[in-house]
Design a protein around this nucleic acid. Structure first.
Lengths: 146, 146
DNA sequence: CTCCATTGACTTGTGCACAGTTCAATTGTG
DNA sequence: CACAATTGAACTGTGCACAAGTCAATGGAG
């Protein structure tokens, strides 16, 4: 009845929501959401990025990112500005406050690791499976988009 | 920097969204969302359920389920009614149209399996890892709720 | 140079997800 | 019985996620 495939998807759905829940708790002191944190991580590790490039990293479109970035800007963590040599592109940069968060939040990954209670080998194996799965499913999604 | 733990969570997040995307495509003929489909699967396999019990199965609260069930009711797939011996409880039952979907949609799991392209052994292994992870993280989430 | 297709971001509208609140029905306790 | 505590559902408000549409800037092709 409910195929194994259905069940794999539900496992993913449930696991994803429970880890997001864990982040919600850990990020509460900064009043940041998990997607907002992901954007900050991207900027911390790669420097200023266009909206498009952030979207490539996180597989999110501008419909999701525009309001999210507006909130981060309003709170003083990032600035946005159109690129002078191509006015279509909006570059997102960290402010000093945004940079400062990097140090402030350096314990976050450890806290998350703690509540996942997973060894590094198991973590890598799981990530490999998930990446492979995501790649296949995304390929299928894009193929049928045409 | 970005710990392996962060990366596991992002893998989950990305994989979950890509499979939801696959469902969106497969479910399009019926104009159903993945969470709506999950509720129907629960009712197909277990018969009438209270809102609370559906929430237990899917780890969703009434804030999510109430509007979702209202949409399914408005479209004629389920009915809702307060239980006579305990007026607090709302039981959700399939209509004939809702039952009929079960046959109509029997190809859905196969279609999902196809675009996941994963063997049954790999699927079971992945599910086991995900269930274990979810259980640990949920335990951590509930512990800190107190 | 002139169109025209493409690109990048934004906006609009719908539907989850979830915290927090409200409220009535029920249950437990003195 | 009275009454406090609990339970089940719904509602409110915020923030993703994403489809679809708009619009200005850009980059060809003729």
């Amino acid at each position: 009845m409910a195929g194994v495939d259905d069940m794999v998807c539900f496992s993913l759905y449930a696991a994803s929501r429970s880890t997001t829940q864990a982040y919600r708790r850990v990020l509460r002191p900064w009043d940041l959401t998990y997607p907002q944190y992901l954007v900050l991580v991207a900027l911390w590790t790669e420097g200023p990025l266009s909206v498009r490039r952030i979207g490539d990293r996180l597989a999110l479109d501008s419909g999701t990112l525009s309001p999210l970035l507006r909130r981060l800007e309003r709170r003083g963590y990032v600035t946005r500005g159109r690129r002078s040599d191509d006015e279509r592109v909006v570059d997102v940069s960290l402010t000093e406050a945004g940079e400062a968060l990097r140090d402030e939040m350096h314990e976050v990954p450890r806290q998350i690791a703690e509540c996942m209670g997973i060894g590094i080998d198991a973590a890598r194996a799981l990530m490999d499976s998930l990446h492979e799965l995501t790649a296949r499913v995304q390929a299928g999604n894009e193929a049928t988009a045409s």
